[in-house]
Each structure stands twice: as C-alpha cells, then as structure tokens.
Design a protein around this nucleic acid. Structure first.
Lengths: 221, 221
DNA sequence: CCTACTAAGTGTTTGAAACACACTAATTAG
DNA sequence: CTAATTAGTGTGTTTCAAACACTTAGTAGG
C-alpha cells in the first residue's frame, strides 16, 4: 500500500535525548546505526511519528522502547529540519530530551553488544547527520533549566545524599560549586527532608539521606 | 503530479507569530482564514514548508510574504503536532516568533479590508485550531527572553526614548516598572548612547533620544 | 508673561541573595 | 591508635533588586 499526496511531504521523526548521570558525569544514550544512512555511526535514538500519534506520545513511545522508562521528565527541545540532514528523503525531526536516573535505565544492547551506550557529554564520538548540533543545544537548554531546583532530582534515586545532589548540579553546569553555599540554598528551598537513614560508602563519615517532601513531590511533574 | 510514499506522511507547516508594540500594548498579527478548515476564524499566519527548504528559511519566507519584513528577531518556539489539530489531514506545525517594530510592519489587508489585523495579546479573538495555545506559549517565552536586554530593541525604531523602551518592557511583562530603577539598569548595561537629539511630543519637557551603541549592535543578531 | 499642567529626569536606602572562605566530625583501614 | 577520607557547619562581604519623591523643561491657555 502506498500513500499519495498532491505535494511532496517530508517524513517526521522524533529523537529522544536521554540524559543521565553515571560515574559523576553527565551522559547521553546513543545508538550505533545498523543501517544506511549513517550506518555504523552513533546517533540519538528516535523513530518515525505515527500518523495518528501526537509528537509527545511518539517521544514517550521511543523513550520506552529504547530504555524501558515509563516516567521521567520529558520535554521538547525543538524541530530540526535542514533539507540536507538525511540523504534519502526530506526528514524533519522533533527533538525531545529526557532526564532519567541511571538505575532506572535498562537500555538493551540489541544484537551487537556495542550498539547502545552511554557517552559522557564531554567525550562524544562523531555523530550522524546534525545530531552533534542537536546535543549541543540540548545541553545548553538543560543548563538553563537548572535554575529550577526540581530538575536535577529526576536524575537521582528517591533517596540521595547532598553530595550526590551537588554532584549532579556540578556535572550539568560543568563547574565546581561551594559545598556550604550549595547546602544552604538547598535547605532554604524547603524541598527536602532527611530520611533519618545514613549511607556508609567507605572509610569515612557516613552521609545523611534525603528525600523530596511529600508536598514538593507534586511539583515534579 | 502526485507524490507517493510507502508510509503515510504528515504535512509540515511553519507558523510565524509576529509580535509588535502599538498603542502601548503588545500585539500579534492574525489573519482571517478565507478557506476551510476554520474558514472565517482568526489564525496565526503560516504556510507549508517547501520540500527543499529549511524550516528557518520557510519562516523567513512567510514573514516576508505577510509583512514585507526582511530583518527581525526570528526564533523557533517549537513544534505542535496533536493529530486532531487539523480536520483534513495530519499537519505538524513548527512555530516561530518574530519581533518587529511597528513602523517596519506593512502587512497587506488583501481583498477583504478585515482579513489581517493586529490584536492586543490581552484581547484576542477566538482562534482556529490550537493557535490559542501556541500564542500563549509564545508570550511566556517572550517574557523569559526579556532578561536579555537586547530583545525589546527589536520592537523599537533605531532612535527611541527611555520612556518608550520602558513601555515595551512593561507591556511584555504586563506590569509597571519603576522609572528610576529601570533607567539605572539600562544605563549600567552600557548598550545605549544619547544621540544628542530630543523629541518634543506635547506640552511638557522633551525627551532625550537614544540609540544602540555601535559595539552593542553586533549583539543584536 | 504668568500660571497650570504634563512628562522627563535624577539618588539613596534597604533587604535579599550570591559568593568567598576553613575548620571540626564521624567513620574505616591498617 | 593513627592516618586517611568524606560529611557537615557559619560568618562576613559584595552585589543586585526594590521602594521611594522631588526638580526640570517644555507647552497651552488665560
């Protein structure tokens, strides 16, 4: 079956940039393309938008297919549509970005053991098409969004230490923050409460665990 | 001639939201649709993206067709693509917004004298499809962008008074600002210089005219 | 020409948030 | 019990936002 139109139509895809934090670095999920075009190159995961599917719904579907994740912060970055971005046909992509805690991420490596990997943002491979540009824009946007204190929480488990939270801020911003100022600010936000539990991770003082307060939890969506 | 695809393709349009300031209010250009769907309703001007045309280029083309404007601040707002937004076929639109000084705007009213008009943002008619939602998002974005001091300059002639500049800020933000604080901030930005000229507009003290300094002009693009 | 009216123009003070900065506390390994 | 390591804490300083009222220069109208 074919579909015919009086005028040429572009194809529309959604690409989903999955951000996470691993080994104290901000990373993104990339897949190695198994087919032309750009075969063998790394790319942002994505796929075509169903003809009766909203853009956001398509983004959720892609996110779930690639990572198994059902809930996360998922927002639109924008549309990218230079005519030369795909050699086969005109493809316009709408990019979304998602923030996912590392332990909720279970991307499957498919047939080839090497075809889906996390890459540190500071250490990216050569990317297919304009995906380098798209990632760059996503990272900028993420940095802007960091003013919203609730954003980095998406990248952490439900219980976390202040050191972890600071870590996340630091690797998104790409610079060190002052510990005392950071904790002061977090405390004054009123979003967190101590669980009472501690985490022991080595031969040193244990860290107190925090969680998001019940009332603040509402803001996370 | 028809164009055939193995899978259904959506149509892709660009819509261009033209912001300007008139009568001390923030306004947008709307057109009254002459054809179905949404015939007779007001809508954001826009059109289909050429198959070999970049999104940005299409946005520039639409802007020029509707308003005669060749230079302005033109930025992407995002893609909107709910499947029910057009009853004929699946249409995904990429919305752009432009800031244009009122006196550079020469939209033509076409055959019917009433088919292209500026509407105050606070006084919009019922809009076709999801255009109300799109406008709302654009206004939010514009307010965010106002932190960048250079943005409102797009809405003013090359020579302007401080009162005018303040006016623009106020009607974008939707609230009054303190005159002294405003002027202090503008002065400290170092972007402006007095032309030495004055503007007399009534039975009161004349206002000094300012322009953007040569060095700051570079930032405007 | 004098008065009334109108918008232009100008500084200071206060409170809040951002920033710089260094030591003590709790735990484990050896 | 000592060394090593990360957790945790307070103060002074600077910078930025916000509140606030009077003087100045022009025009209109008597």
């Amino acid at each position: 079956m074919t579909y015919s139109y009086e005028y040429p139509h572009p194809a529309v895809t959604v690409d989903v940039i999955v951000f996470t934090v691993e080994e104290e670095r901000l990373k993104v999920l990339l897949i190695r393309r198994g087919q032309e075009p750009f075969k063998g190159q790394w790319a942002i995961p994505g796929g075509f938008v169903g003809i009766d599917e909203s853009l956001k719904r398509a983004a959720w579907r892609e996110l779930k297919e690639e990572t198994g994740v059902r809930a996360a912060l998922l927002q639109q970055l924008g549309a990218f549509g230079r005519p030369d971005r795909d050699p086969r046909e005109r493809i316009i992509t709408v990019a979304y970005y998602a923030l996912v805690a590392r332990e909720k991420l279970t991307f499957r490596a498919g047939s080839d053991a090497d075809d889906a990997r996390l890459f540190a943002l500071s250490d990216l491979p050569v990317l297919a098409s304009d995906h380098g540009k798209i990632l760059q824009r996503a990272a900028e946007r993420l940095r802007q969004q960091l003013q919203d204190v609730t954003v980095p929480l998406q990248l952490l488990p439900t219980e976390f230490t202040m050191a972890q939270l600071q870590q996340v801020h630091e690797c998104i911003l790409g610079r060190k923050l002052d510990k005392r100022n950071f904790r002061k600010k977090m405390k004054s936000s009123g979003l967190f409460e101590a669980t009472g539990e501690q985490r022991r991770t080595g031969s040193h003082r244990p860290a107190a665990l925090y969680r998001v307060t019940r009332s603040a939890n509402v803001l996370l969506r």
